[in-house]
C-alpha cells in the first residue's frame, strides 16, 4: 500500500476538490457533470497514458501535441477533400503515427540521443507538416462523424457516456493492464529504474525503447481522432501545448519524472484534476480561464514537493536489515 501512496494522495485531492466544487455549485454533484468531465478531457487522458509509459521508461515525448494537431488536419483533408472513408482514414493515420513514433524511438536508441531533443524535433516536424497541409480550420461533415458525435450511452439524469469518453476509459484500462500486467510493462519499469542493468538482465533495450515511443505516438494519433470527433474539424493549431498538460497529469498522478515509478491510474486521476479545475472556472463564469493554468502550476509544485518528501522518507527508512535471513 505504501507504494500506492502518491496515487491515493492524488485521488484524495481529486475527491476533496470535487467536494469543494459541489459545495460551491450544488449542480456539480450530478452524473452529467462527471460524464462531461470525461468527455471534455478524453483526448488528454488518452495521450497522457502514452506519456506515462514514456516517462516511466526514463524518457519524455514532447511531440504528442503536434501529432494530435497533425492527425486532425490529416483526417479533415483525406475525409473531406479526398473522400476517404473515415474508418480507413483512422487506420491510415494510426499507422502513420506509429511509424513516426518508431522512428523517434529508433533515433533515440541507435543514435544515442536524448529523448528531449529527438521528440522536440518531432514536435516541430509534426506541427510544421500540419501547417504545410493546411493553415485553416477544416470542418468534417462525414456521416460517420456526426453519427459518432451523437452516439452515447444514456445514463440517468441526462448524463451521456460519449464515444470519446469510452475510448479514453478503454485506453486507461488497456494501458493499466499493459503497464502493470505484462512483461513489456515490467521492461518499461526496468528501463526507467536501471537502464544499464536492463540490458545485462537480458532485456532487448532497443526494441523496448522503439515500442514505447511507438505506443506514445499511436496513442497521440488515437487522441487526435478523438479530438477531431470532439470538435468535428481539423486545425493545424489544435492541441498546442497538450504534451505539457499530459506531462503534468502524469506527474500529478504520481509518476516520477526521473523514471522507474508510476501508475496509469494515477495519470488518469491527474487528468481529471486538471479537468475539474477547468470545469470549476467555467461554472464560476467570472474567472479567467488562465486561472486553470495557475492552479495546475501550483498543484504541480505541491505534488513534486510531496514526491520528494515521500522519496526522502522512503530513503531514510530504507534498507530493511538482512534480518529476514534465517541462518
Amino acid at each position: 500500500m505504501k507504494r500506492l501512496a502518491p496515487v491515493l494522495a492524488t485521488t484524495a485531492v481529486f475527491l476533496i476538490g470535487y467536494l469543494v466544487c459541489t459545495l460551491t455549485f450544488p449542480n456539480f454533484a450530478s452524473l452529467r457533470v462527471a460524464m462531461n468531465l470525461l468527455t471534455d478531457n478524453a483526448f488528454l487522458g488518452i495521450v497522457a497514458v502514452g506519456m506515462t509509459f514514456v516517462i516511466i521508461s526514463g524518457g519524455i515525448d514532447l511531440s504528442v501535441g503536434s501529432v494530435i494537431g497533425f492527425t486532425t488536419v490529416f483526417l479533415a483533408l483525406v475525409i473531406e477533400r479526398a473522400g476517404m472513408p473515415p474508418l480507413l482514414a483512422f487506420v491510415a493515420i494510426l499507422a502513420i503515427c506509429a511509424a513516426f513514433g518508431a522512428l523517434m524511438g529508433s533515433v533515440i536508441q541507435y543514435f544515442d540521443l536524448p529523448p528531449f531533443i529527438v521528440t522536440l524535433a518531432g514536435m516541430f516536424l509534426a506541427r510544421g507538416l500540419s501547417f504545410l497541409l493546411s493553415t485553416e480550420s477544416i470542418p468534417i461533415n462525414a456521416g460517420l462523424y456526426s453519427h459518432l458525435a451523437d452516439y452515447a450511452l444514456r445514463l440517468p439524469g441526462g448524463a451521456r457516456l460519449t464515444v470519446p469518453a469510452m475510448i479514453m476509459l478503454a485506453t486507461v484500462i488497456g494501458g493499466a493492464l499493459l503497464l502493470h500486467g505484462t512483461r513489456f510493462g515490467a521492461n518499461v519499469f526496468a528501463l526507467g529504474g536501471a537502464r544499464g542493468s536492463a540490458a545485462l538482465m537480458g532485456i532487448n533495450v532497443g526494441r523496448s525503447t522503439v515500442l514505447i515511443y511507438m505506443l506514445s505516438s499511436l496513442l497521440a494519433g488515437l487522441s487526435g481522432i478523438v479530438f477531431s470527433l470532439y470538435t468535428s474539424s481539423g486545425y493545424s493549431l489544435s492541441a498546442v501545448g497538450v504534451e505539457l498538460d499530459a506531462i503534468a497529469a502524469a506527474v500529478i498522478g504520481g509518476t516520477l519524472l526521473s523514471g522507474g515509478y508510476g501508475f496509469v491510474l494515477g495519470t488518469f486521476v491527474g487528468v481529471l484534476i486538471q479537468g475539474l479545475i477547468q470545469t470549476y472556472i467555467s461554472f464560476d463564469g467570472s474567472l479567467s480561464s488562465w486561472w486553470a493554468k495557475i492552479a495546475t502550476g501550483l498543484l504541480l509544485f505541491a505534488f513534486i514537493g510531496f514526491q520528494q518528501a515521500t522519496l526522502h522518507m522512503a530513503r531514510r527508512g530504507r534498507l530493511r536489515p538482512a534480518a529476514g535471513v534465517a541462518s
Partner: peptide, 8 residues
Amino acid sequence: EVNLAPNL
C-alpha cells in the same frame, strides 16, 4: 554493483 532494477 548489483545489476538489477532497484525499482522493481
